[in-house]
Design a protein around this nucleic acid. Structure first.
Length: 853
RNA sequence: GCCGGAGUGGCGGAAUCGGCAGACGCGACGGUCUCAAACACCGUUGGCCGCAAGGUCGUGAGGGUUCGAUCCCCUCCUCCGGCACCA
């Protein structure tokens, strides 16, 4: 590297990020620069939240992709005068720790805490401004105690309750399986390949449906439209009616049982030609005729092996079985057969539908498959009332009207809807009703590595039943000594020290609940805990919550668009109603960054072996280069497969900045004659203009998280400075202004190199050190943003033919005259007649012309 | 399958109130420096035709609206995220 032939380049030290970066990180720590004074009233607050990571063991490049741009925003906002709170923590309960524990025979807590230790170190190497004093680790009793406290409050409020629900069960491992543990189309256990079965268990739920309508309301939230749409569809509000059918008497069944169906189209009630129950519907056994029993039971068993995604696939051929029973249509007394089919879900509506094949696609497919009657009861304008149907007729127009519907025949469809519902309601055979696709949140997990659900089953005689653990006995701690047994099962069920307790009600024998909570519970309120992570007399400091919430900006992956964000919104509303917090919405503004995939285009995971280790890149290029490269790769919301191609370009850019700042007068061997001939004053003005244009654009790009274009613009400015290096412009006040702005603009993105060069600049000027990260973000000078001439494209029939140079504000007529005067344009208009001239002010002129004659 | 998103040079991407497609970077090619190489710096770089001037095609495919479409509408293809026990 030291060639005597290059004396110029030896004047400055080489850019050595591995030397610079740890030095500044230590200095920032010493100065406590990133500890937020939550009580500072002098500056406006800004709560910047990034989704906390799962401590999987090693940081991969995806963590950098998620966190370093957010850190750039934190730094940018501080320079803009905000008191920024930017905390970090660990989402520390979950399945991988249990898997590791089973594999290595260690306690999941040991595995988790070790991972956290390593990840803290790696996170620090980003040079991110996390406030580590606020750190939260959800697997600590200090944290999960308050999960339990919140659970108890929800229980008291009737927002937590128990009911039966089906789980996927591996009979061989004797465990409940997560969805990702059920593999393949034949749905077998990931460990032992045993076919998975459904098992019904009594489980705990949170009543998210209580807030369904409020959750549909996203007003006042600055969230990406796709997320709002996905949540709206997920909640899936449907307005319709419940209609009460009754079962008919059969040799095997007395009849008269109520069968409630939910329908969004009560106006098609006369078209119901059969009824379909979910195979899990409680009346199925009673309704099944003896000669159908074998077939029905086989079908129910088969359904319980299928996933919901398969069941709802419209791609698949419809399947089902008739029960050999009938229902009576309340409007016309008609007997229609009752079937079961897996496309009807027990968890939606009433678990039963009236099938109107003429006007529902799924029912149509089912009727065709099984030869069931299809009866048109809605027709449109210009269509015969009995026109045959080749597909379901779904609300073709506002003028649709009822046909073959008894007294309702001829009514417009909406009117028929209202009248039929009103008449059913008057007779007690139905009522208008709203159903949601959203289900209550099943929070029970049959796992050992999670928050114990704080209830006790009293085993005294007489029994107190299910007794909540009193607040003063919280936390219910996980045992330190549980063992995963080779024969499987939830270890909590066999850990006597945990299991055996006394009933808080009567003091008699009691058994602890062994279900733990879904880890989404942890992540549904962690941002409040960041404000006071060690508070012991409650989960949340209300005064700080009032002051700091809602979160001003939340950033995280789009994979959380629905569940995590919806659960968090549910928690916020429930806790607001309980008086624990004041705000009803947790996150005012949301941004979804994309995901970095492995080089193979698949999600990065250890098992796939496609994980990119950032440490390696950091030691080779430095954190600043890695940060900048991730921001430069493309739009932040896009993500994409990992490829290091191009990281050298970003590194070269930083080296050029280094060279420009430390050696402004140097020349490189390959430099051309250079712009010495240029007028230095004019060049200086051009430089200032470029710097201020860059500043204006960069400031704007920050608001939209457009890191890639910020970096590109800084590169352009740098290229311009490079051209003036070694010319009389270098070292002038214009040069100093431009290089100063460059450093300030670079500071949020590449904080170490900016700080280093800034400190040298201050030292050279004899000014005492002040961190560049406390510099105020400058405002662009509007006078320098206006160009003194514009190159205006001129088109003929939409094709670019010439460019004319005009002064801004030139009157339209003059611009058009100039365009028409151009020799190239005249040549293109040869033999043509100008039809019209379209002039988009300051943007372009388009001359529309036709062949003459 | 359903819901949501994305397809632009050899590669990552830029430009969307409908107005110069390809900014910036990688790679490649040529040059300066060097005994040489590396580094650094300067220049060229969408395809096709042309010595050039210039022309022409071109933003996943096909159609439409418009003076003008990467951008709006319709149909289709591919990939990514989610689908309720991964986080």
């Amino acid at each position: 590297m030291t060639s005597p032939a290059h004396p110029e380049r030896e004047r400055i030290a080489r850019y050595e990020p591995t030397e610079i970066e740890p030095r500044w990180q230590a200095r920032w720590d010493e100065h406590g620069m990133h500890r937020t004074d939550l009580d500072d009233p002098s500056r406006p607050k800004y709560y910047l939240l990034t989704m906390y990571p799962y401590p999987s063991g090693d940081l991969h490049i995806g963590h950098w992709y998620v966190n370093t741009p957010t850190d750039a925003r934190a730094r940018f906002l501080r320079m803009n005068g905000y008191n920024v709170f930017f905390p970090i923590g660990f989402d520390a309960f979950g399945l991988p720790a249990e898997n590791a524990a089973i594999k290595k025979g260690i306690h999941p807590s040991e595995w988790t805490l070790k991972n956290i230790e390593n990840m803290r170190r790696q996170l620090r190497s980003m040079g991110a401004t996390f406030d580590w004093d606020a750190e939260v680790v959800t697997c600590t009793p200090e944290y999960y105690r308050w999960n339990q406290w919140i659970f108890l409050r929800l229980l008291e409020a009737g927002l937590a309750y128990r009911k039966m629900a089906a789980v996927d069960w591996c009979p061989k491992c004797v465990v409940v399986l997560a969805r990702e543990q059920v593999e393949g189309v034949d749905r077998v256990c990931w460990r032992c390949s045993t076919p998975v079965v459904k098992r019904d268990l009594e489980q705990w739920f949170f009543r998210t449906t209580h807030y369904a309508d409020e959750l549909l309301d996203h007003s006042g939230l600055d969230w990406p439209e796709p997320v709002r749409v996905m949540q709206t569809n997920w909640i899936g509000r449907s307005e319709g009616a419940e209609v009460v059918f009754r079962t008919a008497a059969e040799p095997h069944h007395a009849g008269g049982e109520e069968l409630r169906v939910f329908t969004t189209r009560p106006d098609t009630l006369y078209g119901a030609t059969f009824m379909v129950l979910a195979p899990e519907h409680p009346l199925v056994p009673a309704l099944t005729a003896p000669d159908r029993r074998a077939e029905v039971e086989a079908y129910v068993a088969a359904t319980r092996r299928a996933s919901e995604i398969d069941r709802l696939s419209t791609d698949r051929e419809k399947s089902g079985v008739a029960l050999g029973a009938h229902a009576i249509n309340p409007v016309n007394g008609e007997r229609i057969p009752i079937w079961i089919a897996d496309y009807v879900l027990a968890t939606y509506g009433t678990g039963a539908i009236m099938a109107v094949p003429a006007h529902d696609e799924r029912d149509f497919a089912f009727a065709v498959r099984f030869g069931l009657p299809i009866r048109r009861v809605i027709s449109g304008p210009g269509v015969a009332d009995d026109a045959p149907l080749t597909e379901a007729w779904i609300a073709k127009s506002a003028e649709d009207r009822l046909v073959a519907s008894g007294p309702y025949t001829g009514l417009p469809s909406p009117e028929g809807f209202r009248r039929i519902v009103a008449d059913l309601a008057a007779r007690g055979d139905g009522a208008a009703s709203v159903t949601y696709r959203l289900r209550d949140w099943l929070v029970s997990r049959q796992r050992a590595w999670g928050t114990p659900i704080p209830v006790v089953y009293c085993e005294a005689q007489p029994s107190c039943g299910i007794v909540p653990v009193p607040d003063d006995q919280l936390p219910v701690r996980l045992p330190d000594d549980f063992r995963y047994r080779p024969e499987g099962g939830n270890p909590l069920e066999t850990t006597e020290s945990f299991l055996r307790t006394t009933c808080p009600g009567c003091g008699g024998a009691g058994r602890r609940e062994t279900d733990t909570m879904d880890t989404f519970v942890d992540s549904s309120w962690y941002w409040w805990r960041y404000l006071t992570p060690h508070k012991t007399d409650g989960p949340i400091d209300t005064a700080l919550e009032s002051r700091w919430c809602s979160v001003d900006q939340y950033t995280g992956g789009a994979e959380h668009a629905v569940m995590h964000l919806l659960y968090s919104r549910f928690f916020c509303k429930a806790l607001a109603d309980l008086g624990v917090v004041r705000e009803r919405e947790p996150f005012r503004r949301l941004f979804n960054q994309g995901q970095i995939l492995g080089a193979d285009g698949e999600r990065m995971s250890k098992s796939r072996g496609n994980v990119q280790d950032p440490d390696e890149l950091v030691s080779r290029y430095g954190a600043d280069t890695v940060r900048l490269f991730l921001m430069f790769m493309g739009p932040w919301d896009q993500g994409g497969p990992w490829s290091p191609t191009g990281i050298d370009g970003v590194h070269r850019f930083l080296r050029r900045v280094w060279t420009i700042l430390l050696d402004p007068h140097g020349r490189e061997a390959g430099d051309a004659g250079g712009p010495e001939s240029e007028d230095p004053a004019a060049a200086g003005l051009a430089l200032r203009r470029a710097a201020h244009r860059t500043l204006a654009a960069v400031s704007q790009d920050h608001e939209g998280f457009r890191w890639n274009t910020i970096v590109a613009k800084l590169m352009e400015l740098t290229n311009l400075l490079m051209r003036h290096r070694g010319t009389p412009v270098a070292g002038t006040p214009a040069w100093d202004e431009a290089t100063g702005l460059l450093l300030v603009m670079l500071a949020p993105l590449a904080p170490h190199i900016a700080e280093e060069l800034w400190s040298r600049r201050l030292a050279e000027a004899g000014t005492p050190w002040r961190s560049i990260h406390t510099e105020p973000w400058p405002a662009a000078d509007p006078a320098l943003l206006v160009a003194d001439e514009i190159d205006l494209p001129v088109q003929v029939n939409g094709k670019l033919r010439d460019v004319v140079r005009i002064a801004p504000g030139t009157p339209e007529a003059e611009v058009e005259a100039a365009a028409l005067a151009s020799a190239k344009i005249r040549a293109n208009l040869e033999g043509m007649t100008v039809v019209k001239v379209i002039h988009v002010g300051g943007r372009l002129v388009n001359i529309v012309a036709r062949p003459a004659g």
